[in-house]
Structures are given as C-alpha cells and as structure tokens.
C-alpha cells in the first residue's frame, strides 16, 4: 500500500529525514516511536503533503503511484488521512460544512454524485455515536471551543466519516485521559480491516495496549533505526531510546 524509499526531507533548510525506508502492506498497523525531534511528525506531514516540508530526494509510492506528485487534497481523495497532533480551530467554517465538502470532494474524485443530504446526516449521526460526540456540536466552527480531548475525538470522527485507506495518526493519544484514549482507540479499531492500513505515531506504549500494532519501528536521527513486533514497544517503555540512539 505504502512504500517509502530513501526519503530525505527538510523543514526550513534543516534536514530532518535522512534516508528513511518503510513498507506498509494492506491491513497492517505500524507504530512509529522515537525520541522528540527524530522526525516522526515530519514523516506524517510529508506523507499528507503539508506545505513547508521539502522532499529533497527519495520517493513515496501509494498503491504504486508517485504520491509526492499529488496535491494534498488529491492525496486525501485517494484515501490518505492524517489525524493531526494539534487540530486547528476554524471559526466560521462549521464541522458539518467541512465534512460535507470533504465527502463530496472524495465522491467527485471517484466520479460519483454528491451525497444526498439525508444520507449525509444519517451517516454523520451514526459515526458521531462511535466517538461520543453530540451531533449538535458539529454545527459549530471546526474545533471551535472544543477541549483538547474533543479535538482529538473530532479527528477520529472525520476519519470514521471519510473512511480512508491509510490512516496516519500523529500523536493522537497525547494529552488524552484514559476514557478519551479508549474512545479514540475504539474509533481506530472500528476502521481496521484487511484493506486498510494504519500508522500510529506515538511516544507511548499506552495507545498500543488498545490498538495492537503488527510492527513497531523506532525513528531516530531521521531514519528507522530498529523494527520489530509489539514486544519492541514494551522494550522501549522499559529501556527508553538511549540504547538505540547510541547504536
């Protein structure tokens, strides 16, 4: 599904990713862990196509097409979803407006007609239940006045509604209390399927107790320095990253 080869990327003239390789097959859940400043968020943002991230060499293939050649909105329509670490507040653009515009953009991309309003409302109402968001909150501006936990749940709600093929969750677990973490994990698990892949970028083992990864990677100094199974996350929890960074 996703293949990253020798990826080098810069932010403001500073090289953050230095030859990163990663391959993700359909249905897999990959956790990417690592110390602060290792390039975890940069990797997420480069995949999603966020502006300000400069790829200097290497390639990313998504379903065998050159992902880096696509605009961010096209990547989203192709099925990539980035759950942000710090979701932005957009007063004046309601959550419903965003969701409807996003859904219809995707349908248009696939050559489908716009979703009938009744179906849209029913779908949103159904999905909102999964993340325990009162649909009335969705009439407000995007994330406007939402608590930190509500913002993260709203990211998951968008993901549940848009049903991406590749979910990238950038520290979605940070700042969540245990109940919110459970809700967010349930949302992610609800979407797990043999056709859908997941990348969890996280600092903590905690999330991985709820969302079982197939692979765990350690990102340090701009590269994947170690990969393993779920047991690697536990090892990191005990030993920290020092032993890998020194290696």
């Amino acid at each position: 599904m996703l293949e990253i080869n020798n990826l080098h990327a810069r932010v403001d003239d500073k090289e953050i990713l230095k030859g990163l390789n990663l391959a993700i097959r359909p249905g897999e859940v990959h956790a990417i862990m690592g110390p602060n400043g290792a390039g975890k968020s940069t990797l997420s943002n480069v995949i999603a196509g966020r502006e300000g991230y400069d790829v200097t060499s290497g390639e990313i293939l998504f379903e065998n097409q050159d992902l880096l050649a696509l605009e961010p909105e096209t990547r989203a329509c192709e099925g990539i979803f980035l759950g942000f670490q710090y979701p932005v507040e957009i007063p004046g653009v309601s959550n419903m407006t965003l969701l409807k515009a996003a859904m219809n953009a995707r349908r248009k991309h696939r050559g489908q007609d716009e979703i009938p309003p009744g179906d849209f409302l029913a779908w949103v109402r159904d999905r909102a239940k999964l993340v325990k968001i009162d649909p009335k909150m969705l009439s407000r501006g995007v994330n406007e006045g939402f608590s930190g936990g509500e913002k993260k749940r709203n990211e998951i709600l968008q993901m549940l509604i848009l049903e991406p093929r590749l979910m990238i969750l950038d520290e979605t677990d940070s700042g969540l209390d245990i109940d919110a973490l459970k809700v967010v994990s349930d949302g992610i698990n609800a979407l797990r399927s043999p056709e859908r892949s997941t990348v969890l970028v996280t600092h903590y083992q905690r999330l991985l107790d709820y969302v079982q990864p197939d692979f765990v990677h350690v990102l340090a100094r701009g590269r994947i320095v170690k990969s393993g199974g779920p047991e690697l996350a536990k090892e990191l929890e005990e030993k920290g990253y020092g032993w890998l960074e020194a290696a």
């Binding site: 999603a48 196509g49 966020r50 502006e51 605009e71 961010p72 909105e73 989203a76 329509c77 980035l82 942000f84 979701p87 932005v88 957009i90 653009v93 965003l98 515009a101 996003a102 953009a105 995707r106 991309h109 995007v142 968008q158 848009l162």
Partner: peptide, 12 residues
C-alpha cells in the same frame, strides 16, 4: 487552516 481543509480532500 487552509492546509487543514486541503488535508481533508477539499480543493484549494
């Protein structure tokens, strides 16, 4: 905000 909306598939 613009980049957030685009990341959801909404054309620029």
């Amino acid at each position: 905000a613009l980049s957030y909306l685009r990341s959801r598939g909404i054309p620029k």
